[in-house]
C-alpha cells in the first residue's frame, strides 16, 4: 500500500496565490476525482503532484519520503491530448517505457529482451483493447483510441500514482462511457492510487471513491490574488467497502450546493 501525504501545500505564481492550505492523506487504492470551477487550480494541483511544477511551501510525501521535484516513473500521467508519440506505432508507444528503463544509452532493446518487452506491452494493449491496432500510427487512431493508448503507456510502468488530467474531456459521450468502464477495470486490477481532474461532476461521482472539490473560500475584493483555492469538500464515497449513509447524504447535499453555486456563477 502506498500513502501520499500532502502537508500545508501552497502554490504562488508571481505574487498570485493559486492554492493554499491543502492538507490531504490518500492511500492506495483510492480513486480521487477533483472538481472545481475553471481556473480554481485543480490542474495546477495535478501538475504539483506530477512534479511539473514546484511547491511554494509545504510538503508532498509518498510513503514518508518527499516526491522528486520533476516527473518520474513513480507517477504516470494521461493528459487530455498530445501525450502519445506520433512517430511511434501503438506498440512502439507502449514499448518505449520498457525500453527506456533497460537501455539507458540507446533507449532500444534487442533480441530476447525485446521479445520479452513486446510480450509485456502486448498484454497491456490487450487490457485496453488496442491489440488489433498495434501496428498503426497514432494519427490513424480516433480520439478515444489515442486516450486508451496514453493510458496503456502509463500502465506498463506500473506507477504508484496515476494522474489523469481531464482525460475524457475531448471525447464523445458514448466513447466516454466505454472509457469509464475501462479505467475502473484497470484501477480494480492494478490497485493503484488515481487522481483525476474533471469538469464533469457526474463523472466525478461515478468514478471516484473520494471526490475533492476545489474553491476559493477567502476573497478580498481589494486584492483578488491574495488568497488561493483550497479543498472545500473532501467527500468519501467509499465504493467497494463499508460506507455510512450520513456521508453519502452529506456528499449529495454538498454536490447540490456546489452545482447550484457553479450555476449561479455561470
Amino acid at each position: 500500500m502506498n500513502t501520499l501525504h500532502i502537508k500545508n501545500l501552497r502554490k504562488e505564481y508571481q505574487g498570485q496565490v493559486i492554492l493554499e492550505r491543502i492538507n490531504l492523506k490518500v492511500s492506495s487504492p483510492e480513486f480521487c476525482t477533483i472538481v472545481g470551477a475553471s481556473g480554481c487550480g485543480k490542474s495546477t494541483f495535478l501538475r504539483l503532484l506530477l512534479g511539473q511544477e514546484t511547491l511554494s511551501r509545504g510538503e508532498l510525501l509518498l510513503n514518508g519520503t518527499p516526491l522528486p521535484a520533476e516527473p518520474g516513473p513513480d507517477r504516470g500521467i494521461v493528459f487530455q491530448r498530445y501525450s502519445v508519440f506520433p512517430h511511434l506505432t501503438v506498440l512502439g508507444n507502449v514499448l518505449l517505457g520498457l525500453e527506456l528503463q533497460d537501455s539507458p544509452l540507446l533507449g532500444r532493446l534487442f533480441g530476447a529482451a525485446r521479445r520479452r518487452a513486446i510480450t509485456q506491452a502486448e498484454a497491456t494493449l490487450r487490457a485496453v483493447g488496442l491489440f488489433e491496432a498495434r501496428h498503426k500510427y497514432p494519427a490513424m487512431l480516433s480520439g478515444g483510441m489515442q486516450q486508451r493508448l496514453s493510458i496503456a503507456q502509463a500502465l506498463v510502468k506500473q506507477p504508484k500514482i496515476l494522474l489523469l488530467d481531464e482525460p475524457f474531456g475531448a471525447l464523445d459521450p458514448g466513447i466516454r462511457a466505454d472509457m469509464h468502464e475501462l479505467i475502473l477495470d484497470l484501477w480494480r486490477e492494478n490497485q493503484m492510487m488515481i487522481f483525476m481532474v474533471t469538469h464533469d461532476i457526474k463523472e466525478a461521482f461515478e468514478l471516484g471513491t473520494r471526490v475533492l472539490t476545489f474553491d476559493k473560500v477567502r476573497r478580498d475584493p481589494q486584492a483578488p490574488d491574495a488568497y488561493g483555492a483550497t479543498i472545500t469538500y473532501d467527500i468519501p464515497l467509499g465504493k467497494g467497502y463499508a460506507q455510512n449513509l450520513a456521508a453519502i447524504i452529506a456528499a449529495r447535499a454538498a454536490t447540490e450546493a456546489f452545482r447550484a453555486k457553479l450555476a449561479a456563477e455561470g
Binding site: 511539473q52 516513473p73 491530448r81 508519440f85 527506456l100 503507456q153
Partner: peptide
C-alpha cells in the same frame, strides 16, 4: 507539445 516531454519523463526517460 510539452505534454510529450512530460510523458516521456514519466516513462523514465
Amino acid at each position: 507539445p510539452h505534454e510529450q516531454l512530460i510523458k516521456a519523463q514519466t516513462l523514465g526517460a
